[in-house]
Design a protein around this nucleic acid. Sequence first.
DNA 1: CGGAAGCTTGAAGTGCGTCAATAAGCGTGG
DNA 2: CCACGCTTATTGACGCACTTCAAGCTTCCG
Lengths: 246, 246
Amino acid sequence: MMATMTDAGTEPLFRLLSRYMALDHADRVALSALETGPIRKLNARSDIAREGENPSVVRLLVSGWACRYKDLPDGRRQIVGFFLPGDFCDLNVYILSELDHSIGALTGVRFFEIEPEQFQEVIDQRPNLIRALLWHEMVASGIQRQWLLSIGQRSALERLAHLFVELYYRLQAVGLATGLTFELPITQNHLAEANGLSPVHLNRTLQEMRREGLIELSDRQLKIVDLKHLKKVAMFNSNYLHFNRT
Amino acid sequence: MMATMTDAGTEPLFRLLSRYMALDHADRVALSALETGPIRKLNARSDIAREGENPSVVRLLVSGWACRYKDLPDGRRQIVGFFLPGDFCDLNVYILSELDHSIGALTGVRFFEIEPEQFQEVIDQRPNLIRALLWHEMVASGIQRQWLLSIGQRSALERLAHLFVELYYRLQAVGLATGLTFELPITQNHLAEANGLSPVHLNRTLQEMRREGLIELSDRQLKIVDLKHLKKVAMFNSNYLHFNRT
DNA sequence: CGGAAGCTTGAAGTGCGTCAATAAGCGTGG
DNA sequence: CCACGCTTATTGACGCACTTCAAGCTTCCG
């Protein structure tokens, strides 16, 4: 029982929410009670949901990376956010009827689906949790603002540096960083789409970062070589992540 | 009594929320009960709140334009959202402790402040309202995603076209558009900061739009000359505004 | 009447995009 | 087991959308 709980798909979520506020064992149990359905799997490059759909369930990402993206009629695409393990793909299903963006799997993903009633039941019992979940949504919104600042004002190098530091902190929060190294399972094309850059220029920017001794990247492993310098280049201020518990 | 209600500072807010769902007279009364404190005024170019602060009240903009912005240590600035009459400047004070962005007055503004307890009281009585307010927050988040798409992928002309159509719809929702004309009380500099463009290039893009017969703009009055064409240029899809009641 | 804020224009520079080609890795099927 | 296709990463040459710098103009207001 305890063993299954620690292995549960809700483990990263619990770790994440714990960065925002103190949660107790009962909260932990309540969260794991969300996982009743089967674990679903999808391959990389497949869509989890398309713009215009009206999904009836909330999805919790257990492993792999996904993204929110928007596209234009002529094919241009912008990734507007990453979903990492422990993230909900669209909690706003509750409020809004129709998706105004798509959700795509960037790698193979595993997730499970939660029925609204079931969700409601759990948060009714645990007022702490609804607060933590709202917090998480607000942070997601803050990340979007930070991306606007990046794409609007930062150079390619600064942008990429900022993204890497952000991913480092987010992955660390769900236990997916070991030291200053983490798995970066997405392609340079994805990084380009997230940063509003062409794949070619993104590639050159990556090489510049390596040359400057900021990072090492190979075999999908990103190692931050000089975190202090990287943060300086990115002008990184972690306040927008609102982790107020170490 | 009825007269003061229609003139109330909450009037634009009520109009706005009515675009999302049906609200009744009791909701209207509950909203206007939020306005107990005095109307506060600030001049253009002054800050309503600064990044790092922890405001204890929710502010409702009654007239004038404000914005959310983020800045970098070296002075670069990005406007990440506009506040129009009827918008709350940071409902998330409820959840997050510290502001991760600043709020600035772009024109002279009038607003009033709402204490959390007072706010709580009103929404406890009117479950409809909390739903409408959450809806509004989700739409704000959707607008941010749309801006990311704009700045990341659209050209200067497309970006500006998109912004104008968006502002048109938003202002129309609060009764601030007459036909295809509305007041655009902000400077070209502000437009540049919102679109991640230099003031010079923004000016040239505006002229191009005039030359193409898309808009007329003078004396702070923006007239959309050819809405259909403008929407086409912008590749505008209104779904992200989630106005599901005409 | 002076000074600040905003708009406009010209000239020159550059960060990034586009196009095009190559090469490496990898699963799949004949 | 090799051949094929597909995905991903890389590099060079060239072009352009946008930036920067600079100046002059207007309007407004104290």
